[in-house]
């Protein structure tokens, strides 16, 4: 039996690279976070990330409404009269603005509830979105039926 000339080194080797010095500390809270989310303790990171994903889904809905408002104004000049077109566009743009602001408020409220182990707040922007879409659909149906 021959002994290998260079047996494997049993030592654990160099420590893994901790990453660039600019790496953000995932635990350190910013000043604005301490001001807007005082008290409590950091929740499970999966809950924080899930809350962020829900916020982003609302933001994408808001962006779709903004783009829809612009599309109604830009592409439907031969379908709707000017006042209807402008009214629908304003309605969709306002709904998009309110939803994006409401999404941020909801994110804050949910994060605060998670930090303090309180029940999650009801999503008030969901009925708002439903009502806004219902009004927009009703206007379109009325215009098409009356035309």
């Amino acid at each position: 039996m021959t002994v290998p000339a260079n047996p494997p080194d049993p030592s654990p080797g160099p420590a893994p690279d901790p990453g660039p010095a600019l790496d953000p500390d995932p635990v350190r809270r910013s000043r604005i976070a301490e001001r807007l989310l005082p008290g409590g303790a950091e929740p499970d990171p999966r809950f924080t990330l899930a809350n962020e994903r829900t916020f982003l889904a609302w933001i994408r809905t808001s962006l779709a409404l903004l783009a829809g408002g612009i599309a109604v104004e830009a592409f439907t000049s031969d379908v709707f009269l000017e006042p209807v077109r402008r009214g629908l566009s304003v309605l969709l743009l306002l709904l998009g603005m309110v939803l994006s602001a409401g999404a941020a408020v909801r994110w804050l409220r949910v994060e605060g509830s998670l930090r303090t182990n309180r029940p999650l707040p009801l999503p008030l922007i969901a009925p708002l979105l439903a009502a806004g879409c219902a009004v927009a659909a009703a206007v379109v149906i009325a215009v098409v039926v009356l035309a």
Binding site: P26, P45, T48, F55, L56, I59, L66, M97, A101, A103
Partner: peptide, 25 residues
């Protein structure tokens, strides 16, 4: 096992959508 919320990213994303809506109006 701990992750501080990225509140700045949330606020500027929502703010940019509100600004977009205001500019659209």
């Amino acid at each position: 096992g701990q992750l501080a919320p990225d509140i700045a990213a949330v606020l500027w994303t929502a703010s940019s959508c509100v600004v977009l809506g205001a500019l659209g109006l």
